[in-house]
Simulated scan of single mutants.
Amino acid sequence: MRVHIRNTSRAAVTLLLLLAASAGCSSKPPPTVEVAGGVPLVSAQSRVAAPSFSGEGLDGDHISYEDYKGHIIVLNFWASWCAPCRLEARDLNELAQETEPLSVRFLGINVRDSRDKAQAFERAFQSNYPSIFDPSGKATLGFQGQIAGYTPTTLIIDRTGRIAGIVNGAIQKETLLNSIRHVSEEAPSPLQGIP
């Protein structure tokens, strides 16, 4: 008996296997900086560049990481069927508004979902920042080895485009806020603005 898997499902399964394999093969974790009441951050000299990504937003507009360079980016991987994603949705919306004056921009990547369910989720939680619709895992693929591969996962990307922190699981509002503030107070790199 042959089982045919749709391309979308095959890509999602492949992505999950790659993420699981790379998580088990990773070397020693990078040194971290403890933030009072916050998410431990990767020390500035040990950060790695976030991969470039882009895709179609849930509203049909094109979204590109390149459009947000120079800002601190909070990147949240989520799905409508994910219970912890529902728990953190309002806090993420509030943080997006509260941290905008710090030059922080929030982006979402919706994974393993259907467009209509993802759009209903955004309406229900009145999402105030854009999300890439990524059922095939194309935008997510570049993050293999850097994220755990489950939802929700939230990354803090510094102004120079390097991954400063990762939260696996639902965020705690004050904890994430304290880490965002810490990253916003870091001295700009002399390479900032150089592609």
Rank of each mutant, 00 (worst) to 15 (best):
T175N: 14
L87W: 00
I109D: 00
C25R: 15
R181T: 11
I73T: 11
L41K: 09
T8N: 03
E66A: 15
V74P: 01
G137E: 05
I171W: 04
L95C: 03
A79Q: 04
A23R: 07
P29Q: 11
N110I: 06
D134K: 05
N178R: 09
N7D: 09
L58E: 11
A164C: 00
P188D: 15
D158N: 11
A89C: 10
L191N: 10
E174F: 00
L176Y: 03
P40N: 04
N76A: 02
R90Y: 07
M1I: 13
N110E: 07
Q144H: 12
A164K: 01
P195W: 13
D158T: 07
E100K: 13
A79R: 07
Q97A: 08
R181V: 13
V48C: 01
G165Q: 07
Q144E: 12
F125Y: 10
G193W: 14
D91E: 11
V42G: 00
C25G: 15
R123Q: 13
A12W: 02
G193I: 13
V3R: 11
P188E: 15
S131N: 09
S136F: 10
N7V: 03
I72R: 05
D59Q: 02
L87D: 07
G108S: 14
R112L: 06
L177F: 10
G70D: 12
L177Q: 11
Q45W: 12
D116Q: 15
G55N: 13
T160S: 15
P30Q: 05
E94M: 02
G165P: 03
R181C: 00
F106H: 11
S127I: 15
F106V: 08
Q192G: 02
L177E: 07
L177H: 10
N76V: 09
Y129A: 14
T140D: 06
G70R: 10
P195V: 12
G37D: 02
Y65F: 06
T140L: 14
S179Y: 03
T8W: 01
I166L: 04
A170P: 06
G37Q: 02
S22N: 13
L75R: 11
V167C: 01
H62N: 14
S136C: 08
G169N: 03
H182L: 08
S184H: 06
P135A: 03
P152H: 04
L17W: 00
V33N: 03
I109G: 02
S52K: 13
G24L: 14
Y129T: 12
F125E: 04
E186V: 07
A12N: 02
H182S: 12
Y150M: 10
E94R: 10
I109R: 01
A83R: 05
N168A: 12
